[in-house]
């Protein structure tokens, strides 16, 4: 599904050039559950956001179903993120003045399809994640665990093929973290979705059937330096 060919990402400023990714090449088949670990600043999030079409590689290619994401227009990339990707973020990024239900509906709304039935689907997703009775609550009225589950429900809004999770358990206590990891595992195993998760936690990393380790922008966990076949 994903193929990275010598993907390189460099940030240039007056203080010099920083290489967040150094010629990363890897393949991620559909249905994988991949965890990405590494020290801070190693390029984990950059890699995740590159897969999510939010960062264009400086050089090399990122292919999704053989389509070069780097060659897509901004509008097509937005469409790709909206329809193919579900993002789960460490800080949840819920819109504070929208209810749980409305937050789940945000990506559906951007899909420009008929607005009918969106609320029903959002309610079903919240119910699946055990938040059926919290649909009308604002984020501040929910616990952090509930907020993260709302974020997961939102990620599922457009029934994406891929879940990209950036430290989804980083702000959660161990019990809530386990709940969230179980949910992600279920999305991978039961739904067949590809889950790619960045984490600092060795516990969280265990849910992956493949583990990538990044150091200074280079994947060290492959057969060849900088190359990982998953």
């Amino acid at each position: 599904m994903y193929v990275l060919e010598s993907a390189d990402k460099a940030y240039t400023s007056r203080r010099g050039t920083v290489h967040a990714l150094r010629s990363v090449s890897l393949e991620i088949p559909k249905g994988s559950c991949v965890t990405i670990t590494g020290p801070s600043g190693s390029g984990k999030t950059t890699l995740l956001l590159t897969l999510g079409g939010l960062i264009r590689p400086t050089s090399g290619r990122v292919l999704f179903h053989s389509v070069d994401l780097g060659g897509l227009s901004d509008a097509r990339l937005a469409q790709y993120r909206n329809q193919k990707i579900g993002f789960v973020l460490q800080t949840f990024n819920l819109v504070p003045y929208l209810s749980a239900l409305e937050n789940v509906m945000v990506p559906m709304m951007f899909m420009h399809r008929s607005k009918n039935g969106l609320a029903g689907r959002a309610r079903d997703l919240l119910g699946r994640l055990g938040l059926g009775d919290r649909a009308d609550h604002l984020p501040r009225e929910l616990s952090v665990g509930q907020q993260q589950r709302v974020a997961i429900a939102r990620a599922l809004g457009n029934d994406p093929e891929v879940i990209l999770a950036d430290e989804p358990t980083g702000n959660l206590d161990p019990r809530l973290a386990t709940e969230v990891l179980d949910t992600l595992r279920e999305l991978n195993e039961k739904d067949g979705r590809t889950v790619i998760m960045v984490t600092h936690s060795p516990e969280a990393a265990r849910i992956g059937n493949r583990k990538l380790h990044l150091v200074e922008g280079t994947c060290q966990d492959g057969a060849l330096p900088g190359t990982v076949a998953v």
Binding site: G52, D74, A78, V95, V106, F110, R154
Partner: peptide, 8 residues
């Protein structure tokens, strides 16, 4: 967040 979720 909106842009991440697919807003144009």
């Amino acid at each position: 967040t909106f842009l991440t979720l697919g807003a144009t």
